[in-house]
């Protein structure tokens, strides 16, 4: 490759990459734009790109008609609740596997991963019936428990890969320096583990926020998070493009922003540490 042409090459690559990037991003961009249009403009032919009458009334309408905010709160409670609960159970488990590995540690980890492969329909009916009988159907608590369980393997794996990177010599150094178990936890382990725990938290909030099998099947009205809220637009309200767009924008915006911050951790978390 001639180095002299590298600038021209860079230009070509830039143009191509931006074109593809914008193409992939376009449906999201179009949704956001449409959310600021009136219904008439939203279906106008030919459609206008930015040259339209910008309005916020769709957002007001979505909120007043279907109570966006309540569903948003449900999503927050479910995703945060299931993640925090999962972390409480996963941190000691990942911790012990990373620092006191036994002969069966690898087997246990692989088995945990395999539970992730159990198709949800295999257990849908019993969970549905159990929840119906003990009153967890359409409840936030029920969803918190289910989502915690389905994401637990991922949480444990992610934490395990982070914890394993904390060098054992550091813990030994702390012990030589006279740190007891409490001081070791407080001054050495926790500060070193916090970044890993934070990334795990972030990724799992995203996964739980977007989970759309259990949230759709186990909720009706009361506990419905945003996934179910949007599903109610499938017909015929979906034909009101501007309102659909406003509702969609509000459903994805918070997590899109979180997601952009957690790109790196996403790769690691979702590949069970196999790709970093």
């Amino acid at each position: 490759m001639a180095r002299a042409s590298s600038n021209r090459r860079k230009t070509v690559v830039t143009v191509l990459a931006w074109a593809i990037g914008l193409l992939i991003f376009f449906p999201i961009l179009w949704t956001v734009l449409t959310s600021f249009k009136t219904e008439a403009e939203a279906v106008a032919s030919p459609p206008s790109f930015i040259n339209f009458h910008w309005t916020l009334e769709n957002y007001a309408e979505v909120q007043s008609r279907s109570d966006y905010f309540r569903h948003f709160l449900n999503s927050v409670v479910i995703s945060l609740g299931s993640t925090v609960l999962g972390l409480i159970i996963a941190i000691p488990a990942a911790w012990s596997m990373a620092f006191v590995p036994a002969k069966r540690t690898k087997d246990i980890l692989m088995w945990m991963l395999s539970t992730k492969m159990l198709p949800p329909v295999g257990v849908l009916i019993p969970i549905y019936l159990i929840f119906r009988d003990i009153g967890l159907l359409d409840s936030l608590l029920g969803l918190i428990i289910v989502l915690m369980l389905i994401n637990l393997p991922i949480i444990i794996w992610m934490l395990f890969t982070y914890f394993r990177e904390i060098p054992g010599e550091i813990l030994e150094a702390a012990r030589m320096d006279g740190a007891g178990l409490k001081a070791e936890l407080l001054y050495v382990l926790t500060p070193m583990a916090v970044p890993g725990i934070a990334s795990t938290l972030l990724l799992n909030i995203i996964l739980a926020w977007n989970e759309a099998f259990w949230t759709l099947n186990l909720t009706a009205a009361k506990a419905a998070p945003l996934t179910a809220f949007i599903a109610s637009y499938s017909s015929p309200e979906g034909l009101f493009y501007a309102k659909l767009s406003a509702a969609s924008t509000m459903a994805i915006a918070p997590i899109l922003i979180l997601g952009w911050f957690s790109q790196k951790q996403l790769v690691r978390g979702l590949t069970f540490g196999a790709v970093k």
């Binding site: 449906p27 759309a212 759709l216 949007i230 659909l244 994805i252």
Partner: peptide, 24 residues
């Protein structure tokens, strides 16, 4: 920025993605 654009669809919840494609 291109990376951010390309990664975005992954964070869109499945119900939103499907409805936007279907209708719009």
């Amino acid at each position: 920025i291109v990376r951010i654009l390309v990664i975005a669809p992954f964070f869109v919840m499945p119900t939103v993605g499907a409805l936007v494609w279907k209708n719009m």
